[in-house]
């Protein structure tokens, strides 16, 4: 068991190293001069400032040092928590800009993932092996997973936001309010949060329902289910056993799907101009702010790795078999 955890951690460490290396390599080996193109597209009119910034970025990229030295410098800067200075919001450090956006993204992601997982599993288990439901929920599930996140977000913004006028469609809170812990501001936060959350929730729902439906069918064919049925156990009891067993692969599925859902969150945020990481990606692209873009990339990778690790831990506590192996290995 500890060996298993060790291997997992090794993969995560490797992944992190690969991500950092990608981050370091891309600006250096892609065609073109990143510093020039970044500053050209950034809208800087004052020539003095432009010169200072060029000098700064040339130095940060360290382009005149030998390659291996550049690489080591990059790592040491990273470990000190230094991701560079944003071009777009000069002279604010990239880390600060990102930390301001992270809470918004998490506020969308965590409820959307957890709720869609719970509800999707229920739906899937409910649909399996009952012909009418199966033939309706299954196609709906597949169509939902095939829906591009931004398109459903657009449809919701247009129908519920603009045509019906129930929800606001842009921003994280009303710009007329100053952030604070008063009821009015919190209400504004919630109404702005609801539509992006809902559209992510709906798209993610389909995948979980399909996964659960397939797992339950598989479990219902297992020997223990047949045995229970021959004993005359009620259908509900058999299904409850099957459901608990089918949940385990769904937890693994959570880890696999994480990347897709995070991507979905970024796209959804862009539609609603929600002040999270997705909008930051778009802004940094439009302003050619590569430091910010790469900072967001690293943050997302770290987030995915941490979440994967948490899921691994949860799995150990939920699946008794891994616990047995654990004590078995140590005794």
């Amino acid at each position: 068991m500890w060996r298993y955890m060790g291997r997992k951690l090794l993969v995560y460490a490797l992944t992190f190293a690969v991500a950092v290396t990608i981050n370091w390599m891309i600006p250096r080996f892609m065609p073109g001069d990143p510093v020039r193109s970044m500053l050209n597209r950034g809208s800087i009119s004052d020539p003095g400032a432009l010169e200072r910034m060029t000098a700064y970025y040339e130095e940060v990229f360290g382009l005149d040092a030998p390659l291996h030295e550049q690489y080591l410098n990059f790592w040491s800067g990273l470990l000190r928590g230094d991701l560079g200075i944003s071009v777009m919001l000069y002279p604010e450090p990239v880390v600060d800009v990102i930390l301001r956006a992270v809470p918004y993204t998490l506020a969308l992601l965590i409820p959307a993932i957890v709720l869609s997982w719970i509800v999707g599993n229920r739906f899937g288990a409910f649909a399996a092996r009952s012909k009418v439901l199966d033939n309706s929920i299954l196609p709906i599930g597949y169509v939902l997973t095939a829906t591009p996140y931004m398109w459903l977000a657009l449809l919701m913004a247009w129908s519920l936001g603009i045509v019906a006028g129930i929800f606001p469609t842009a921003g994280g809170h009303s710009y007329a309010l100053t952030p604070g812990m008063n009821a009015e501001f919190l209400a504004s936060l919630v109404t702005h949060w609801f539509l992006p959350f809902l559209s992510m929730f709906v798209v993610a729902l389909g995948g979980w329902a399909i996964g659960m439906r397939n797992m339950i069918i598989y479990e219902l064919e297992a020997d223990y289910a047949t045995y229970l049925r021959t004993l005359g156990a009620p259908r509900k009891l058999v299904r409850r056993y099957a459901y608990r067993n089918a949940l385990l692969p769904q937890i693994t599925g959570l880890a696999v799907q994480l990347g897709t859902i995070i991507t979905g969150a970024l796209l959804t945020e862009i539609v609603f101009n929600y002040p999270g990481l997705g909008t930051l990606v778009l802004d940094s692209l439009n302003n050619r702010d590569f430091f910010l873009l790469q900072g967001v990339f690293l943050f997302v990778v770290i987030g995915v790795l941490v979440a994967n690790f948490v899921i691994d831990l949860v799995y150990v506590f939920i699946d008794p078999r891994t616990r047995v192996q654990m004590t078995g290995a140590s005794s």
């Binding site: 692209l285 990339f297 995915v304």
Partner: peptide, 9 residues
């Protein structure tokens, strides 16, 4: 583990 679209961006 790497989120594909983010790498692509």
């Amino acid at each position: 583990v790497l989120p594909a679209l983010v790498v692509l961006i």
